[in-house]
Nucleic acid binder design. Structure first.
Lengths: 138, 138
DNA sequence: ATCTTTGCAAACTTTTTGCACCAAT
DNA sequence: ATTGGTGCAAAAAGTTTGCAAAGAT
């Protein structure tokens, strides 16, 4: 487990709470809020507190294991850093799609050339209306 | 004043508070948080409450006069709907740039063709590192 | 033994809401 | 006179923090 090593290397400690949070994120394999993570973790280990989840997420973020993003309005969601991509978020149904890599690359290039602006791909989010919602009239 | 008419047409009332909020946004001519709007408004009319600002912003949003966006992490910011554009937000210094229109258009087209995803330009925000921050080493 | 992490409770920030009063139409 | 808007205070939602006890190394 790479994550566990990363924690060790930084002088961090591998605790049950941290294991639980990590596996909750891995199992979710998507975009999950702190509370969603908490409810999974808390379901199995009721002694683990919400604030511990937040602190663990913070720690994992510092280690570069997870990343949090604010998709659209509302709370932050976390996802694994190995799954870096750009998010398309439906403003109607909340669906989260991933933008095609080449499209992202292209945009990234152009913004860099023209404005010297360096996209953080993992922090990129576009709101709009997804195919489904668009077709059920709006 | 178009906005005032819009309010009337919906059976809404044009109150001092609403006038104050509207002109605060117009004068700010950028991206302002509810609190920034409040502090301007409150500076001139100390009797106007923060909750009134929020309610007014809500009302104006329903009328399509303003729009709020969550740029990056942190609180919502409001801007006039006539100034629709895509935001580039610097993750370091918080600077907000506007993306070139043609670039946006291109991306918009492609996402539509490929995924059937319809960008809401005004709700679009890209995080990254701006030119300045990028060059002062990172 | 050391020093990080946790549980807990409480604070904080941003936004929303209930209610009685007030004011725009 | 209506009915929508406002002030106020209090709640809600999401996140952070201080502190003493517990646990990983």
């Amino acid at each position: 487990m790479k994550t566990v090593e990363a924690i060790h290397n930084q002088g961090g400690r591998v605790t049950p709470a941290r294991r639980a949070v990590i596996s909750a994120i891995v199992e979710a394999s998507g975009h999950v809020s702190a509370e969603e993570i908490f409810s999974v973790v808390h379901g199995q280990s009721p002694d683990i507190h919400l604030s511990t989840v937040y602190r663990t997420l913070d720690a994992l973020e510092k280690l570069g294991v997870v990343e949090h993003v604010h998709l659209g309005h509302g709370r932050a969601v976390y996802h694994l850093e190995d799954n870096v991509h750009q998010h398309l978020v439906c403003d109607d149904c909340g669906a989260v799609l991933e933008a095609p890599k080449d499209l992202s690359k292209q945009l990234e290039q152009e913004l860099e050339n023209r404005l010297g602006f360096h996209i953080r791909a993992h922090h990129f989010s576009i709101l709009g209306i997804c195919k489904n919602c668009y077709h059920k009239k709006r």
